[in-house]
Design a binder for these strands. Structure first.
Lengths: 215, 215
DNA sequence: TAGATTGTTAATCGATTAACAATC
DNA sequence: TAGATTGTTAATCGATTAACAATC
């Protein structure tokens, strides 16, 4: 099986979200055309995307919403449960810990870690903040594969390397830096400042367009 | 001037970040080749990207780091200051309010809004939480163009529509839903759950590859 | 069977990379 | 001037869209 391109993968969670909503509204079946109108993409793209993984539909009928939803869930690995730890019990770390919705998708946040003595021992939504000293032992004992990294960028490379050496396989990186890790480690970046800059560009570009028209 | 493609814009903040780091390290000039090695992209792409906005370099010399940094900043609109409000003083809203780094880029968070009486009146890093009743008046009086939306998805569409009617031009949307707003409104989504699913896919795909090898 | 809609091939479009003339 | 490196054109690659035969 040849690798699926990242552009396709990036679209899957959005399909999953729309299908979940259809399911909540008791929609049984949907055609690529109907879905394309809801999602504002082409029907052709939808069919191409799904056919990367084999056909999920039926000619003349369309797609069974419940079946398609589950299949995409499987592709994304949402039929598994994962233990997730959060490195850095600062604002973002705590916000993530408080967000209980991830559990619905199989991501269980089981602990936070921090070097700051004053936050160690605290509990966030029942999840304990442990000292970084305990990191290695905890990862080993609890079969943790995923770590969210919410620490300042200066410390991120070194801590990321430690995580990998302790057995972490995927890092959800919130630090504004590119991590250089072995190729078998998955890194998913969330760069909020960069997202805000993109917003800024679009805002500025629209404002300029408007000014031109006024002249 | 023809519109610049979104793929190019999405790369600009990353260039900006690398150039900022070079600047901190007192690097005066850099060639597309050197930068390409640092950033792990092709030199050709770097030159193509920059030339969308006119030439910033000089044959035989390369690019002046400080000049290029400032120019990209201008393109991204970082030479302006913006007032930003946060709608929803929950975990993510508070985390954003606490993140003082946005100010360095010209984004000043000046207020949070919430319907929850118990959080109204609180201060986060000195920034007051106001009641949603005050929203319209506040936006009008304080020339607010950008709002971060950190409320549950059920309320997001209606609140977003209000924001636009009060004069907001750009929404930084953290709610897991697609907002349907007039085309002159910029929407920048941060869908954390979808980011985590992409991570999950990559983790799963690597694990499967490994299993195959073992057999 | 007739109608609908997929799965899939072919055509188009856009983005990336390569190549090199221009020029500092 | 010689060497370096950009700016830019041309070639390639990949992603999207269109079209339609297969089939439920």
């Amino acid at each position: 099986m040849k690798a699926i391109s990242a552009t396709v993968i990036n679209r899957l969670p959005r399909y999953y979200r729309y299908l979940g909503e259809l399911l909540e509204n008791d929609v049984i079946r949907i055609s690529s055309k109907e879905l394309s109108e809801k999602m504002n993409v082409t029907a052709s793209q939808i069919r191409q995307d799904f056919n990367n993984f084999g056909g999920f539909g039926q000619q003349g009928y369309g797609y069974n919403v419940s079946y398609l939803y589950k299949e995409i869930g499987k592709i994304l690995g949402l039929d598994n449960n994962y233990n997730v730890i959060i490195i850095g019990a600062g604002n973002i770390g705590q916000a993530l810990a408080n967000y209980s919705d991830f559990e619905r998708r199989g991501f269980y946040i089981t602990a936070l870690f921090d070097v700051n003595e004053s936050s160690v021992g605290k509990k966030i939504r029942g999840i304990e903040v442990l000292h970084m000293d305990k990191l290695e032992e905890y990862i080993m004992k609890n079969n943790v594969q995923i770590a969210a990294l919410t620490i300042p960028k200066a410390k991120a490379p070194q801590v990321a390397a430690s995580l990998v050496s302790f057995g972490i396989k995927a890092i959800w990186n919130f630090a504004p830096i590119d991590l250089h890790l072995p190729e078998f480690v998955t890194v998913q970046n969330v760069h909020l400042a960069e997202s805000l800059m993109q917003l800024s560009y679009n805002l500025k570009t629209y404002n300029e367009k408007k000014e031109k028209k006024l002249k």
